[in-house]
Amino acid sequence: MAPGPGSQPTGPGQVGRPILATRDLSLWYGGSQALSEVTLDVPERQITALIGPSGCGKSTLLRCFNRMNDLIDGVRITGDVLFHGQSILGHDMDVNALRKRIGMVFQRSNPFPKSIFENVAYGCRIHGIRKRSELEPIVERSLRRAALWDEVKDRLHESALGLSGGQQQRLCIARAIAVEPEVILLDEPCSALDPVSTARIEELMRELRETYTLVIVTHNMQQAARVSDLTGFFYLGRLVEFAPTGELFVSPRDPQTEAYITGRFG
């Protein structure tokens, strides 16, 4: 069985203090429950992977961290989500300011129908940086961090839609880091990419870990094993097991986890 409600976050050997945390978080879409009493701590400057079979609630949890579930009608939440120890679920929360600090990269790359430059500058413009002279260094820095600069520096003002899938996904990462977030949420960022692009993104995630906290949802257990520091296994809306990645994959404590990572279901 999963750890009981209100159990202390697992994961001995964690480094860094928790930047994001959930406490007994449950979520319903209309009548169907998607998350049941999830409690976990996401440590700072680490990569936390959330794995589990389809429909287990891992993406839903990710979207709780930047309140993207607000955009869906009929969502009901109990429990709490903490960012730097403060609840972010209150009505007085400035959601747009929160989303500036907690960026997100989606499963399908979604560059805006604008130039490469404007895509990266988008968030900065939204948050009040309008001068080109200020935007240019930010765009260059973000594209460099996203390992895309050398490929696009000569065509910054061409449409972002002309890029390949892998490039588009890295552009979305550049777009997310351009606003200097503290956390980047990645929702299956490589599921639509070929192995070469996937490898580049994974490499990029390891580099970004130096500066940012990353939370990644993935279907791909090898990917979780390769890139993450901590892994949480979700099943039927519950957090079954949350442990340092090496530990979870080598000696899972829960039989469901073991069954999943050895490929017996999911």
């Binding site: 979604n110 968030g123 413009r125 606003v179």
Partner: peptide, 28 residues
């Protein structure tokens, strides 16, 4: 014809509904 995911991308960057409308949806 403007994909839902483009709207979400804009909102995830902290844009309000109006900013998303003006900067992403209407141009598209």
């Amino acid at each position: 014809s403007v994909p839902e995911i483009a709207r979400q991308g804009s909102r995830a960057l902290g844009a309000t509904r109006f900013e998303t409308l003006v900067r992403v949806i209407l141009p598209g």
